[in-house]
């Protein structure tokens, strides 16, 4: 039997924080491919420490529902799950550990689907259109922003938008600057976040003076999308990420 374990951050305070993980898990259950699909969290139950005790399958793939590579995917998740690399043999199970979602090739497709959903039925101004990918960013960990640059580059290479820019909340280039100064009449702003939360619902709209999905300023129109992580296509990205780990074992056995 084969199980997929999706790891989310979860929250002690916000009941919606774990919702995308449950929704993606349910979509993957419906689409088949795994005998079991199980959710676990850092801040909610079941904890990563105990989730494997609830999994019946001998083959387990763990996919972190995290966008960036960094503290959680490299340190906290392996430590809490007791993993010692891409493949771990543990309590009679083989556990394969996938990387974060944001670095996966198909992430750019999900971002573009999010844009498509946002722009459906909306009119663009005459002129150029810029896509701005928004990450949290932190000066403490450079890798946290890598995933934004990576996806911006991948989308830029496709040549769909006149301009593709990166922007952040907690590091430069700062989102207010980017949205205000990018040389385009249409600015599509997509938060590359895993879930809705305080930032996507409150701080970002407040700081930028957004009035909803569409904000018309004198010189530009800003289109503000929902976070990429809540898009239904993330479920197939998670499943694909899981399937990709199946070759990990070969690498492990050679070494």
């Amino acid at each position: 039997m084969k199980a997929l374990v999706i790891v989310g951050h979860g929250s002690h305070l916000n009941e919606d924080s774990s919702l995308p993980v449950y929704e993606h898990a349910e979509r993957i259950r419906q689409s088949g491919g795994f005998d079991e699909v199980v959710e676990c969290f850092w801040k909610e139950e079941p904890s990563m420490r105990h989730v494997l005790d609830t999994v019946e399958s001998e083959e387990v793939c763990v996919v972190p529902a995290f966008i960036s590579e960094g503290y959680f995917t490299q340190q906290v998740i392996p430590r809490e799950l007791g993993l010692d690399g891409p493949v771990t043999f543990k309590d009679g199970k083989i556990v394969r550990y996938a990387g974060p979602l944001g670095t996966f090739e198909k992430m750019a497709d999900v971002i573009l689907e999010r844009v498509e959903d946002l722009m459906r039925g909306k009119e663009l101004r005459e002129g150029r259109t810029a896509l701005v990918l928004l990450g949290h960013g932190t000066d403490l960990n450079k890798r946290s922003s890598d995933v934004i640059y990576l996806n911006a580059r991948r989308i830029r290479e496709r040549g769909v938008y006149d301009i593709v820019e990166e922007a952040f909340l907690d590091q430069d280039p700062e989102v207010g600057e980017v949205v205000g100064k990018v040389e385009a009449e249409n600015v599509i702003l997509i938060p590359v976040f895993v879930a809705e939360g305080w930032h996507t619902r409150e701080t970002i709209p407040e700081d930028l003076g957004l009035t909803g999905e569409v904000t018309v300023r004198e010189d530009r129109t800003i289109f503000y999308g929902a976070p990429v992580g809540t898009h239904p296509s993330m479920a197939s990205l998670i499943a694909a990420r899981a399937r990709e780990t199946e070759h990990y074992e070969v690498v492990q056995n050679v070494s």
Binding site: D53, T54, V55, E56, E58, E59, F89, D91, G92, K93, I94, E249, N253
Partner: peptide, 17 residues
């Protein structure tokens, strides 16, 4: 090396039963 250990107890199955 066997990939999994069928002889080891599966806690999830045993606890369910």
């Amino acid at each position: 090396m066997s990939r999994t250990s069928p002889d080891r107890e599966n806690v999830a199955v045993s606890s369910r039963e």
